[in-house]
Design a protein around this nucleic acid. Sequence first.
RNA 1: GCUGCUGUAGCUCAGCGGUAGAGCACUUCCUUGGUAAGGAAGAGGUCAUGGGUUCAAUCCCCAUCAGCAGCUCCA
Length: 627
Amino acid sequence: MESRRVRRYLPSLAARARGRQRTSPTRSVSEAWLPPKARGPMASESVAPVESPFPLSTLRHSVSHLMASAVEALFPGAKFGNGPAIEHGFYYDIELPEPLEERDLERLENEMRRLAKKAGAMVRSEYTREEARARLAQRNQTFKLDTLARIPPGEKITFYAHGGWEDLCEGPHIDRFDQPFAFKLQRVAGAYWMGDEANPMLQRIYGTAFWTKEDLARHLAWLEEVERRDHRHLGTELDLFSHHQEAGSGFIFWHPKLGAVRREMEKFWWDLHQTRGYMPVYTPHVSRETLFAVSGHLENYADMMYAAMKIDEMPYRVKPMNCPGHILIYKNRGRSYRELPLRWAELGTVYRYERSGVLHGMLRVRGFTQDDSHIFCTPEQLPREIAGVLELVRTLLTAFGFQFTAYLATRPAKAIGDEEIWTRAIAALREGAVQAGIALELDEGGGAFYGPKIDFKMKDALGREWQTSTVQCDFNLPERFDLTFTDKDGTKKRPIMVHRAIYGSLERFAGVLIEHYGGRFPFWLAPTQVVLIPIRESHADYCRELANALSSDGLRVACMDDSGHMNKKIKEATQDKVPFLLIAGDREVAERHVTVRQREREQQENLPFEQFRERARALQATRSLTL
RNA sequence: GCUGCUGUAGCUCAGCGGUAGAGCACUUCCUUGGUAAGGAAGAGGUCAUGGGUUCAAUCCCCAUCAGCAGCUCCA
């Protein structure tokens, strides 16, 4: 694997790998509830690659060199950092006296094309450390000298050159530039040298390359589709949510249309829980600070918590998590083994400080509602409880049309609780997965310090992966709060606590749903499910009658009975992505029919209203993903 | 938080050192139309906020707030 070999030369790759774990199963309990950024395979990469002796990543790595040489040609004095291939392309980190602008990218592309034509072969040369140092020092390449110094003794030191421009690099590279390939420079952003905040910030130029124009075009089309589905754009376009300067960043205002979606999410969520023996609990948003001292949040999590407020001279805090509240309910009286397991669930809104630069639409926010639940059980009950949670996760994610993968995260280096309890808990997680029939991938050492967990990554309609659901064993909080239950033999024993969230955060899940569906919500979630459009004013009564009937079935219906032209109403409802438009004129009124325009279907159909009504009821009742 | 970019009508965006424009949306009137924009008129802006430079600032400078692309971070 190239990337593995390159890593020694390019330590920023390690940082990249770390960054990627943000969305990977190594996230800790709180992280699981924080919105990661989606990353996903390019649609174009699923297409069979053109026959080539070199993998795509090698081409991209080489094109990053080509770009660097173009930068040096246009901006003499540039100092080069690292320039690896990455998942969807490549980048190069470069220090320049002036910030680059987007229009510079076009100049660079032209220069790259010019250089590629005359560059010919890429030539590999091996040097001694001293020679290499001299070559880099002569060009005053201080970052490269830094990189050179990090190459372990005994390793070969190689340079790759094309068209007279050379770069310290382990390779491998393509053989020549005078062969067909297609590339595009995409954007400029800042990036710390070696990924360390303490280091100077370089300018990172991102680009991508493919062997053919067609592949590149496909990739760019995919990016456009991602752009089209961006929940922030759709949120404005479809009047779903907003945030406000007056309210501060990272806080979401759900508009009525997204409110309707959320109500459906909540209803569905609660239906699933009620039938699985969960009980609802509600806990306050603000508590005395001492509660979070006991829980350890103050000690370990203070950076993420909002400052204390004084009430009656005592410090209070807004909650960053729901668990301490649920624990207080548990501790409110003595507990018997007879009542375990206790399964308590709350849609609990929490507030966490996130650095301003990480906020992102609904996906990373400062106030959000977790679909939080805590299960208090005996060690013996653990496998059964885990199985129950996993089944619930599968049921819920599948209902929205997500595929998912589950990862078992085991004991990290820094952990509390003795070996034995970890071993038993991990065995319980495995056992639960077997019972639920869910395959586990292993994330060795990826558990939280307080217990092992299973994280889920779900894949959306564009193939991007998101982490939402998580199931975590906790040995820490039961200790800290001295939770007990009285067992059969009359002795006090320590329960195990399981934290779990399935949506994770309603904000983030809703944001992902918007992108997953591209704003075309399935019938049961659609903010407006049916729109009625009378052809003439004289048909409005009929339409209102039908609207009332559908409305009494519990559906969200709008009757566009104001004056105005039918065509325009059709256009508006279509743009709102309403699943069904029912149009009625003389013919329909006479026969008690409707003409149905179904979203994204050319063919419209004329059918008895009652028949449509049955169909709508069925779609709603089954939470069907298709119309 | 850091680097860069951005902030003009509800939305998308023009524009300019001499206090502003378009399209859509909105309001009113006309239009009764068989499947994606009927017509006309009107209203709507402290040009993000606060300082500064200038005879004069929406425009130039600084700060703040907010957004965007990344980086870093996310027990």
